[in-house]
Design a protein around this nucleic acid. Structure first.
Lengths: 344, 344
DNA sequence: CCTTGACCCTCACGTAACGTCAGCCCATAA
DNA sequence: TTATGGGCTGACGTTACGTGAGGGTCAAGG
């Protein structure tokens, strides 16, 4: 019942070289040799090889198999759990990759971006997005996965750029219209999630290459900001005194970038079910007031006029990520603050 | 805008060594060097690196990335499809592994087989089964995945072995009972699929190690065969003449192993919806008759008595993988044969 | 001017699990 | 006797880097 390497290899579906290797590293040393030096494998050897193969199929390394079979009492559950964790990780990776590959092939097949360069750009974009957003988030992110949304953004950026090129001022009517559409698209494609918006911003500031890829230059970005401001100011103009309007216009941009983080924080509290009289909520409301005063000043009469404007002009919230529900929550907090002050 | 290796590495989340490597293999050669020989990466280099990273995330090898970026018009769809096929393969592999690991951990946790040796045996069994059965088939295979079924088989084999050890004759009543239970369990655990049974047989003959692992020695196997025969003969005895019974007993075992392949073939035809008058079906029926005549002889009167026995004793089909539906199909074929003969 | 610490350079070996020769030995059958 | 089909050892190749060794470079501080 002694087998030569070739015979054993054939019976076990391995190559001779593999058995040589196992011999060399001491994992499976044939128990005897012929006079001519041929390896001869006995029953024990074959049994050991079967176990080796079994453990190999679990993905264990040859070294691990060696220690496992050397009788060392390594806890089996640990080995299994380790392998399981490993495989779990590989599985999610592979699934991510598969989704991505399918999306890319989709792009190729639908005839979008037939040239290598543009295709690579898209790919690059995707990998960047993956650095900042989780797979689940990306799945709800139409900008990348859906070619039409992507095309829409390309067109939008192109239009803004052409406005900039032609020297159109940000307070031109068409600029305001476009900028508001920009913000609305942002709201739509982020699902109204201000946190997404923040991370998008972070990504754009941290990845210079992104600007080249998306054609969203800082210039374009600034233009949109200003045009959005002008659009809102045009509405406020119908409610404020010229002095108030001038003050607002002078300070609106200063803290414009501070709103999204605040809104995101409020969205988190709402999602968490934080009551309006919780300290965390109150702190946020304080911040809200602070930002508001930044361009509205401190006069309660002015504040009333701003409120009036917001009550009559829902368009002021277009693309601001502020929903009526969120406004309501903020109002509740202010009431809670007032209530807590009165008795004191 | 020139970056050193360290800076570029930090910005892209790579190691310096990796960039050195890319330089060495010509994948990303910095466009310039400082006087001291420091690598200096320019805008173009950074762009190229981004693309390299993007393609890497798709799982492409560095060599493939090199050719892809060298402007050679390698069809992109082909690359993607290749990667997709690859990942698909890996995915199924990983899923198989995961299932297996979970099953093994289950075994460990439920306290079954606390010792390494037995655990390895189980593992070995699993890998062997995997060589002969597809993953889907194994999922419907309780013998391995369910510890209770496995224990049942161990007990069963033990009981048969003890009968053999005690020298119990195969026609002993207890032997017949056990053997029939054996066959019934086989039918249950293979889902009544005769093809499974065939492959099990093939596996047991081709894998000597399996006999040691399962304790199903050829001796045990032969004993079960004979005991099953004796059980059936005991029933036939009530219907046949002593001469007929003696003839049947003398020849029954000869072709006992030829029935499962035939039954499997019939099951396939039934599943395929082959009509009873198809040539393929007729050939199988001829084979059926041939096997039947092997132990029943050629006398129509004897055949009638066999039929009588089968009509009155459904137990004759216990563990035979022959269902009433299959019998009905065979009967239809015989009618078709008779019909095709009469007009001729 | 010298040192210190952070970078940078090249060279070269190591990794895991074998594949693939090369050069030579052994066995068996025509 | 020789052709053919194993088998033996030794050694290099594969992938995508990690990890030093041994030695320059640069900016800042003493």
């Amino acid at each position: 019942m002694l087998l030569s390497v070739g015979e054993l290899a054939k019976r076990c579906g391995l190559t001779v070289r593999t058995l040589h290797h196992y011999d060399a590293i001491g994992l499976l040393v044939p128990s005897s040799r012929s006079d001519a030096g041929y390896r001869l494998y006995g029953r024990q050897d074959i049994e050991r090889l079967h176990r080796i193969q079994a453990l190999r199929r679990l993905g264990l390394s040859l070294a691990d198999i060696g220690t496992a079979l050397s009788g060392s009492d390594m806890p089996l559950t640990e080995v299994i759990d380790r392998q399981l964790a490993q495989i779990e990780c590989e599985l999610t990776q592979a699934q991510r990759l598969k989704r991505q590959l399918i999306a890319l092939r989709e792009q190729l097949v639908t005839g979008q971006s037939p040239d290598l360069a543009h295709w690579l750009d898209t790919l690059e974009l995707m990998t960047m997005y993956e650095k900042y957003f989780s797979p689940e988030e990306l799945q709800r992110f139409p900008m990348l996965t859906q070619a039409d949304s992507q095309a829409e953004w390309v067109a939008m950026v192109g239009m803004i750029q052409s406005l900039v090129d032609r020297g159109t001022p940000p307070d031109a009517h068409e600029a305001q219209i476009l900028a508001l559409r920009w913000m609305t698209m942002l709201g739509r494609d982020t699902g109204g999630n201000a946190d997404f918006l923040n991370r998008l911003d972070k990504m754009y500031t941290q990845e210079p290459a992104l600007q080249a890829l998306s054609r969203i230059t800082p210039e374009v970005h600034r233009f949109v900001r200003r045009a959005v401001m002008e659009a809102r100011m045009a509405i406020y103009a119908r409610y404020l005194t010229p002095e108030e309007l001038a003050f607002a216009r002078a300070h609106y941009l200063d803290q414009m970038d501070d709103w999204p983080p605040l809104i995101a924080a409020l969205q988190r509290e709402i999602a968490a079910g934080t009551p309006a009289d919780a300290p965390a909520a109150m702190t946020l409301a304080q911040r809200w007031l602070e930002l508001f005063r930044g361009y509205a000043g401190d006069d309660p009469a002015t504040h009333r006029r701003f409120r009036q404007a917001h009550e009559n002009e829902p368009e002021l919230l277009a693309g601001s990520f502020v929903t009526p529900a969120l406004l309501d929550y903020v109002r509740q907090i202010f009431q809670a603050i007032a209530a807590s002050r009165t008795p004191a």
